[in-house]
Nucleic acid binder design. Structure first.
Length: 570
RNA sequence: GCGCCUGUAGCUCAUUUGGAUAGAGCAUCGGAUUUCUAAUCCGAGGGUAGUAGGUUCGAAUCCUACCAGGCGCGCCA
């Protein structure tokens, strides 16, 4: 209907001025929230009045004067500063119910994406410990966004980048070895502060001890002089041998990764691919990328280090790629990773990062553009941290000390549905407070139960209808019996669902969908309380059943996208 | 100090890419179950949109300054 109106406006405009070159994309038509302004409204006359050298209201009048007759439109008015308001016939509005009942679970899908390929990378937490609640928001956001983009006809690949190389992993390995030695001989107690101290480190050490016994034991580790963590790492590597150190490393990383995957599955998230940082270091991959940059004049040498000319591609300053000690920096592998992303020929690449990485955005975007040469877009979406509350009490966390709530604990305590819903119910770039008590509560305070209850209620009515021998049978001719204000409100809400799907994809904002679900649920509850659905008049009854059945599909579909269950019974 | 993000009701947040009278929930107060699930509904109060300017038909939204908060500014990852 929106498109029909846009078309009418364009035609009218070209009648007023044959040379008009206003495109259909620039015509805005929106669904009115207040019914006194009609069903649809457009601001074209205010937007373009200056082009015609007219006052907005005068242009609006002209547009209306020239507009073609259309059976769907009852009347058109000029209002306020120059809005053109369209009043649509009821039968036209009822069409949406028919469409939903036809499309069922595919209602809302569109082909905007045109099967374009998108790589979306998210979570990508270092495998140095279990996922904690801080990772949860990015995880839920990335997964919901993926679902939304799929709904819009994009082909999505979800990827997790595993930082399985580098210093943090060495520190993890060392932490595990430390606990391992303590397990074997409790005289070993070298509490070095940089090491990971979470419970899970004990678990890994215990497993290694169980499987490999004293295979990695170093007799005099206790007496080793420790100046700094780097020396410590290299000494242990030397004594134990690089091979054995790597063996422990692999065992540790693998252990944690299994744990992370488990947590993600509990969150309802499946990744299509896992990309290992270590794969970038094999076969001289990284070297090739760096020589490519050097050959194309993107690097220079200074102070015995190799620098990336990141300033000329939008960064605040230049950055080091190869350190004085010949180690590569984190940035190097990240650039190599993004080169790889470009080579995989996606139409668009999306990264979801914690907001604390925002300073990192220009250099990666810059590097990406060097490789993609404009053939692909990199979009980096930042997700702010969530503060965790238990009622009024803020739960503070420190990661290194191991004193944090894991995502798994949260999922077990709150449940997958509420966890996902709460994480994405706010704009991602907005700080948010996550109240565990609220998410757990099963009363009206909790929007998840509120929405699910609306769905369950509808199911319950259908169950009742069957028990009472009032089986639903759809006949579109009965729909005109829907005349109550509440009914028309719900119809209007249902009509706007496809727009919400489209918009939440365009803006990368899943929270639009959670807001929508809440609003729809509210209208359903109000309607339910005010009117009897299962009335004796079978025509009216079937019309009402059609309305709530359509609502049910929309709830079900949006629930599928958000990743929350819509129960038939509660 | 420099850069990025944010500031909306007592609290948590929306506001359909600049639209019409800024809306929900919680909390507070008052009401509704002989009727399809009260995990629900109906009603009331509550606002100088951080402050001050600017841009235009029109600003919570865009620009500038200031105030307040978060984050980032390593040859760390």
């Amino acid at each position: 209907m929106k498109n029909i109106i846009k078309d009418l406006i364009i035609k009218s405009l070209s009648k007023i001025d044959k040379s008009s070159n206003i495109s259909i994309e620039s015509i805005e038509v929106s669904i009115c929230k207040d019914k006194k302004f009609g069903d649809f409204s457009s601001n074209v006359s205010m937007k373009f009045a200056h082009l015609y050298d007219l006052k907005p209201r005068d242009l609006a009048r002209k547009i209306i004067h020239e507009i073609e007759e259309n059976d769907n439109i009852l009347k058109i008015e000029v209002a306020g500063p120059g809005f053109i308001n369209f009043f649509v016939s009821k039968n036209t509005q009822f069409e949406i119910i028919e469409k939903i009942l036809e499309d069922k679970t595919s209602f809302g899908k569109n082909k905007e994406g045109n099967n374009k390929k998108i790589l979306i990378e998210f979570v990508s937490a270092n495998p140095t410990g279990p996922l904690h609640v801080g990772h949860g928001r990015g995880a839920a956001f990335g997964d919901c966004l993926s679902n939304i983009l799929k709904e819009n006809g994009y082909e999505i690949s979800k990827e997790y980048y595993v930082n399985d190389a580098g210093k943090q992993i060495d520190i993890l390995t060392l932490s595990v070895l430390q606990r391992y030695h303590e397990l074997i001989d409790n005289n070993y107690d070298f509490n070095y502060e940089d090491l990971y101290k979470g419970e899970y480190v004990w678990d890994i050490a215990a497993e290694i001890h169980r499987k490999h016994e004293k295979n990695f034991f170093i007799e005099n580790l206790n007496s080793m002089k420790i100046n700094n963590i780097d020396d410590y790492i290299s000494s242990v590597k030397n004594i134990l041998s690089e091979k054995k150190f790597n063996e422990v490393k692999n065992l540790a990383v693998n252990f944690i990764q299994v744990n992370i995957k488990k947590t993600l599955i509990l969150s309802g998230i499946n990744f299509d691919s896992w990309f290992f940082e270590s794969s970038l270091l094999r076969d001289n991959n990284l070297k090739k990328v760096i020589s490519f940059l050097s050959n194309n004049n993107h690097t220079y040498e200074k102070d015995n280090a190799l620098w990336f000319k990141s300033q000329q591609i939008g960064d605040e300053k230049d950055r080091v790629l190869i350190k004085e000690n010949k180690d590569h920096t984190y940035l190097s592998t990240d650039i190599a990773y993004h080169k790889n992303k470009v080579e995989r020929k996606f139409n668009k690449v999306i990264n979801i990062w914690g907001a604390d990485h925002h300073g990192y955005v220009p250099r990666i975007k810059g590097a990406f553009n060097i490789f993609s040469k404009g053939e692909s877009d990199l979009i980096i979406l930042l997700v702010q941290f969530a503060n965790l509350f238990r009622g009024k009490d803020k739960i503070s966390m420190s990661t290194r000390s191991g004193n944090f709530i894991t995502l798994e604990q949260l999922l077990k305590e709150v449940g997958k549905d509420a966890t996902r819903f709460f994480y994405i119910a706010r704009k991602s770039d907005q700080h948010m407070d996550f109240d565990i008590e609220l998410a757990k509560s099963n009363n009206s305070n909790n929007p998840v139960y509120y929405i699910q209850y609306a769905h369950a209620r509808i199911c319950s009515i259908f169950k009742q209808s069957i028990e009472n021998g009032m089986q639903f049978s759809f006949n579109k001719d009965y729909l005109e019996l829907l005349s109550k204000e509440e009914e028309m409100k719900i119809i209007k809400k249902l009509s706007s669902y496809p727009d919400i799907i489209k918009k939440s994809a365009e803006k990368y904002e899943p929270h639009l969908l959670t807001n929508y679900m809440r609003e729809l649920a509210q209208e359903i509850h109000s309607y339910y309380n005010k009117f009897q659905i299962l009335v004796d008049d079978s025509k009216l009854r079937n019309a009402r059943l059609a309305l709530i059945e359509a609502s049910r599909y929309v709830l079900k579909n949006s629930g599928r996208i958000i990743g929350i269950n819509m129960p038939d019974k509660m």
